[in-house]
């Protein structure tokens, strides 16, 4: 992957020099870098590796997914708050995650905590399972599990 980055910088440098402006300007370099991204993306399968910016793109995708979940579940929680009668059934359940390592489990725990309606109460010593307190197990456990799976997949795309 460093090879792809170097080639991209090299293309940008060539672009700046070949443009033949009166003085070297940074904006031309950036434009060249953008052109280089396109070229490297089209050629990356000849290197036999992943495209080096694909991690960056999947990070952005993770952020978008997170924002969507944040807004959706905030709506659910706020709906419970303004209902005249409180009738949800909270509960604590175990969730076994396929993620491994400090960074991945921490990221998932952070995302779960930030989505309204779910709190991580305890993480097991090995970090392979969470105990999650959900606000409405009765109604929304399936939706919660689905969004957990979605987060997991998105995190894996970034880290692996």
């Amino acid at each position: 992957m460093p090879a792809q980055f170097l080639i991209n910088v090299f293309i940008a440098l060539l672009w700046t020099l070949i443009s033949d402006e009166d003085e070297l300007s940074f904006t031309t370099f950036v434009a060249g870098y953008l052109v280089g991204i396109v070229i490297v993306f089209l050629m990356h399968r000849f290197f036999g590796e992943r495209f080096y910016l694909s991690r960056f793109f999947s990070l952005i995708k993770l952020l978008l997914i997170f924002n969507r979940e944040l807004i959706l579940s905030a709506k659910v929680v706020l709906g419970h708050i303004i209902r005249p009668k409180i009738k949800f059934k909270p509960g604590l359940f175990k969730y076994e995650t396929a993620l491994r390592g400090d960074w991945e489990t921490t990221a998932l725990a952070l995302l779960v905590m930030l989505t309204p309606g779910s709190v991580v109460v305890e993480v097991t010593q090995k970090g392979d399972a969470f105990y999650i307190h959900a606000m409405d197990v009765d109604q929304s456990k399936n939706a919660l599990l689905r969004s957990l799976k979605r987060f997991e997949k998105a995190i894996m795309e970034v880290t692996r």
Partner: peptide
């Protein structure tokens, strides 16, 4: 936990 809690696996 509140009385309405229906599940506690911990």
């Amino acid at each position: 936990m509140s009385d309405t809690t229906i599940e506690d696996e911990l």
